[in-house]
Amino acid sequence: MGLDYKWVFWNTHKKAYDRLIVSGMVIYLVLFFTISFLTNPEIIAETVIIRAFGSLAIIMLHIILAIGPLTRLNTKFLPVLYNRRHLGVSMFLAALIHGIFAIIHFHALGNVNPIYSLFTSNMDYGSLTNFPFQVLGFFALLILFVMASTSHDFFLHNLSAKTWKRLHMMVYLAYALVILHVFLGAFQQETSVFTTATLFLGWLTLVSLHLVAAFKESKVDRFVAEKNTEGWHKVCPPEEIEESRAKIFTVKGERVAIFKYDGKLSAIHNVCKHQGGPLGEGKIVDGCVTCPWHGYQYLPHNGQSPPPFTEKVKTYALKIEKGMVYINPKAFPEGTAIPPISSS
């Protein structure tokens, strides 16, 4: 990335996205408050605030976790992925309000430090149903805090996409902690078939989406190609690749994107340097491979982002033999120019 970092590069879609997030959150909170005070006139505001923001954060977390596999199953969901981190930060803020109010409500104004109290006021760590559930929520919030605070591209680049992704995969741990936080906390006292069933249904939906997407993907990863005498891998006839699009091909478990454009073919590594997006599901726009996730661009013949950007990906050599495209499995260093071959 060769440009200065800004808080947010605002554009029409991001603005619309954020407006939708805020409206959704407001609608939820207003409805929750209204129902609470109408059906439960003796309830106190602190309790309703804690419950409203807690339940909102959980629902948002479910939506966030569904977006990834949805885009794997249907690329038309990609616009939802585009600005997912704003959704994540908003969810963290809702969870933070829940956490702060709960810590003040239950742990402040005592004669010990509220955070110390959170860990020590219930010592039944050996029991499941009596387990200090607030500790689980605390660690989930901590994970969400780390994620929200490193969500900016600045951290993404400085931590490297791999480390960043690893860090952000902790959201799955946070999800498990949150579910247990609710099942061992709220549900132990506010027992209701309907709320319990709601979270169970949420779990079922997320697990199904993720596993269906995962098995679809691992089929691609397991692919073993036919090889010619020189060790080049047989891909497909060139006609199989659409114009301005790519075919994703698995070489030794790693994915390569073979693009067809202007009667030429070029192969680059499938993983975008930004967030690891699948370049092979992208498109050639203005002569550049454009990542479907956030629109990062690379020149197909050398895997380099056009100036002023500086991202580079690995490139691969191609050849056509008896009407069949072959690829050399040995990658060239990132940004190495390889002359495109003719697709006919």
Binding site: K162, K165, L211, V271
Partner: peptide, 16 residues
């Protein structure tokens, strides 16, 4: 994502 991360995702969700 790289293949390793895809695999990690799969195992995490089987775990969940």
């Amino acid at each position: 994502m790289i293949a390793g991360q895809r695999k990690a995702h799969k195992y995490i969700w089987i775990g969940i």
